Amino acid sequence: MSLQQWGGIAALTKAATYLFGFVLFFGVLDTSKYDTPELSLDFLIQNRDTFFLGYIVIGIIFSLALIVLVQTIYQRFKRFSPELMKFTSVIGYIWATIVLASTFVFLTSIEVIAALYEQDPTLALTIKQTISIVVNALGGGIELVGALWVLAISYVGIKHRVFSPLLHYWGLLVGLAGVLTLFSGLSFLITNPFFEVTTAIFGLGQIVWFIALGVILIKHAPAGSSDSYQGQTSKHSPI
C-alpha cells in the first residue's frame, strides 16, 4: 500500500475521531445539565474512565493520523510549491504536537483530581479549572494552527488544480472559520454567537473535508510509491 493510500486512511480516521467526539461529548457525556463548576467536577469523577478513553481517541489517535496525513500531503503537493509546503508541514506537525500535549495533560490530571476530590474538593475544583484552561488553549479553544494548515493546502490546491476545486474551496471556508476563532476572546465579541458558528463550521466542516480528501487519496493513489508523482502533470480529481 502506498503512502497516498495510507494518507487517505489517515484522513478518514481523522473524520471518524471527530464524529466519535461529537457523539461522545454531546451525547454520552452531555454536560449541559451540570452547569456549575461543582457539578461538572462531580460528573468528571463519576465518568473518569469514559473521559479517559474518549481523549485517547480524539487526542492520541487523531494526532497520529494527522502526522501520517501531513507527510502524505507534503509528498503530493511539494512539487507544486516546495517552500510553502515545507512551512505547511511544520504547521501540521505543530498541530499534532499541541493536540498530543493537551491530551497528555488531561489524561495525567484525571488521577490527581480524583485523588484530591476525596480529600479537598475545593482544591480539586481549582486544579480542574486550571487544567481545563490549559487543555482548551492547546486542544481547540483557538483553532488557528489547524486552520492555517487547511488554508495553505487549499490555496496550493486551487492554484495548481491538484484535486477538485470544490474540495479546495470548501477547505478555504473551513480554514477561514478556524482563523476567526482567534478573535473570540475579545471582550466586546466574547458573547457574540457568531464565534460559536465559526467553531462549528471548522469542526463539522473538517469532517466533510477529511472524508472527501481521504476518498480522493485512496481512489487516485498511484500503483507505485508516492515519489511517482514527481513526473506527472497536474490533474485534479473528478470528485
Results as ranks from 00 to 15, higher is better:
V23W: 15
S234K: 07
R161L: 12
F210H: 11
S164Y: 04
Q206C: 06
W170A: 08
N192A: 14
K86T: 12
G7L: 11
Y18S: 08
L125R: 13
D120Y: 09
F22S: 12
L12I: 14
A101W: 04
L173M: 09
L217K: 07
L186P: 12
I98Y: 10
P193N: 13
L69R: 02
Q129T: 05
L116F: 12
G224Y: 01
K78A: 08
Q119F: 01
L123R: 13
K78I: 01
L189N: 09
D49A: 10
S234P: 04
L172H: 04
L138F: 10
T181F: 05
R161G: 01
S225F: 04
W209A: 02
A223H: 04
G27S: 02
L213M: 14
L12S: 10
I73L: 13
L180H: 05
I142S: 03
G21I: 12
N136R: 05
V179D: 04
V23E: 10
F26K: 08
A114W: 04
A200K: 13
K86R: 13
W6K: 15
I127Q: 07
K235L: 12
M85P: 01
V179A: 10
A223G: 05
T126H: 08
S237M: 05
I73E: 09
Q230M: 07
I127E: 04
V156A: 08
S109M: 01
L100T: 08
I190E: 15
L69C: 06
G175P: 08
I153D: 00
G178M: 07
T198L: 06
H160S: 05
I131F: 03
D120W: 07
G54K: 09
S187R: 08
Y74A: 05
E118A: 13
G92Q: 09
V208I: 15
L3Q: 12
R161P: 00
T233Y: 12
S237W: 11
I91G: 03
K235H: 13
T130V: 06
L64C: 07
I142C: 03
I239H: 03
V23F: 13
L29P: 09
E111H: 08
Y169H: 11
S102R: 03
V197W: 15
K86L: 13
K14V: 14
K33N: 11
I131Y: 03
G141W: 03
G231Y: 14
V135N: 01
G21L: 06
T17G: 00
F106T: 01
I239S: 06
P121G: 08
S225K: 15
F80R: 11
F210E: 13
I211R: 00
A177L: 09
G92Y: 06
I158V: 15
F195A: 05
F51M: 02
G139C: 01
F77R: 03
I73Y: 03
F163K: 07
T50I: 15
L41V: 05
I60Y: 03
W170H: 14
A15I: 03
I201V: 15
I113S: 08
I110F: 12
I153N: 09
